[in-house]
Design a protein around this nucleic acid. Structure first.
Lengths: 232, 232
DNA sequence: TTGTGACTGATTTGTCGTATTTGGTCATAT
DNA sequence: ATATGACCAAATACGACAAATCAGTCACAA
């Protein structure tokens, strides 16, 4: 066995790391800081993670999983979760509710620091947008009108997500409307613009969603393993 | 008379400056570089502009005017220029066609360099989005449906414009669809989602547009004068 | 009057040696 | 076995000084 199996402690470490990385950034956060905040010794951290890098990537993995689970759950619970607007709305809520994921999505230089310089980091090895698959399948399931290129829709969705988490880099916060209102507005626009003329199929949309979700998680796990196999 | 009235030379200087600032950024572009590229002496530049800062701001003013003129013209020439999608499409085309304006819009740190640190720079003194006025008036003119908050629409439009010029900061260029296709996609979505049920009023839209345009230019001139009155 | 480019003072950049911090290890304690 | 924190090599930050660069000026030329 490589790593410690003290799951609860590992979570405490990751919790502390998330807080500190978001607040102080990768560079200014020391392993000692994380240990202190998590209430464990420094050595204990190295029982869970081989290096600071891998701790960071472990956090990235956990947060990504939590994020995916969260929007899936929100959509499941939402009566309108089967429409394209209803889905995307909950994706945005999930993204916006996690400061760490938001920082990752916008490639926040302050938060990521030197991690971005690493030769084989997460962002370098991620290739294509997963959003395209999502839109394509939604379209095939009849939740999005046919006469429109899914690649473009996927990209516009990415633009909106980026805008949601990054507009404060070009505008004073006081001029940015509340995120909830913006998200609801986006959902309304998406529904109006992309729902097929027959009104779409709410239930089919939700059904296909679970498939996508499962496939996405598998792909993610795979990429993560791939990582660990790579030489340092 | 403060400045030289050799208008043609001033334009040559600004042309050279635009090229160099976009390519090398504010810091790496020297006044000597600009003089050389414009084919004038360094002294001549100071016959037109008090300082490098003011040269930069002069460029900002010119490019902003050109940009506004360009989208106005495009909309005027576009048969569908009176719909919200038709309008916004041409605004995005104009923005995307100017590397300098694109860099300004995304507050490109490489291009702006130390100019951003100046205590009273352009970005610090600009307050509210002009896009809100635009949307509000379009709505009053009946080109946008009433049952939707113009502040939110305006902000979403800003998000999309930002996405258009800034997505390459978080994605490899090869995964970004052609800008034209993205713009057309956005226009289609806007039209579908925001046109009133009665189909809107194309001509009224165009008419009101000219008013907005004129008001916008006046406001801009005013802000620009305000700037020159401010102490250094 | 209009334009030039050599000149200058201030700022920036580069260098290098020293002090401090920090990621990671491991002998020791529990 | 499991966990700790003192310890070490490597990286980073700092300071002081030298060298280079550059924005802006001005005596002179056209």
């Amino acid at each position: 066995m490589e790593k410690s199996d003290n799951e609860e402690r590992e979570q405490r470490i990751l919790d502390a790391a998330a807080d500190l990385f978001v607040h102080y950034g990768y560079d200014k956060t020391t392993v000692d800081d994380i240990a202190r905040q998590a209430g464990v010794s420094k050595g204990a951290i190295y029982l869970h993670f081989k290096s600071k890098d891998e701790l960071f990537e472990g956090l990235l993995v956990r947060e990504t999983m939590v994020y995916h689970e969260k929007w899936l759950q929100l959509i499941d619970a939402d009566p309108k979760g089967g429409t394209i607007g209803g889905m995307y709305k909950n994706v945005l809520y999930a993204l916006n509710s996690s400061p760490f994921m938001s920082a990752m999505f916008r490639r926040d230089g302050r938060v990521l620091g030197n991690y971005l310089r690493k030769p084989n980091n997460f962002f370098r090895r991620q290739n294509q947008s997963t959003r395209y698959e999502f839109v394509k399948m939604m379209q095939d399931a009849g939740a999005i009108r046919q006469d429109i290129d899914p690649k473009i829709i996927a990209h516009i969705m990415n633009m909106l997500a980026y805008g949601l988490v990054a507009m404060d880099e070009i505008m004073a916060a006081e001029f940015i409307p509340p995120a909830d209102d913006v998200i609801e507005g986006i959902a309304e626009i998406m529904d109006r613009a992309l729902t097929p003329d027959d009104g779409g199929n709410n239930e089919a949309g939700k059904a296909i969603l679970r498939q996508i979700s499962e496939a996405g998680r598998q792909q993610f796990e795979q990429m993560n393993n791939q990582n660990e196999r790579e030489p340092k």
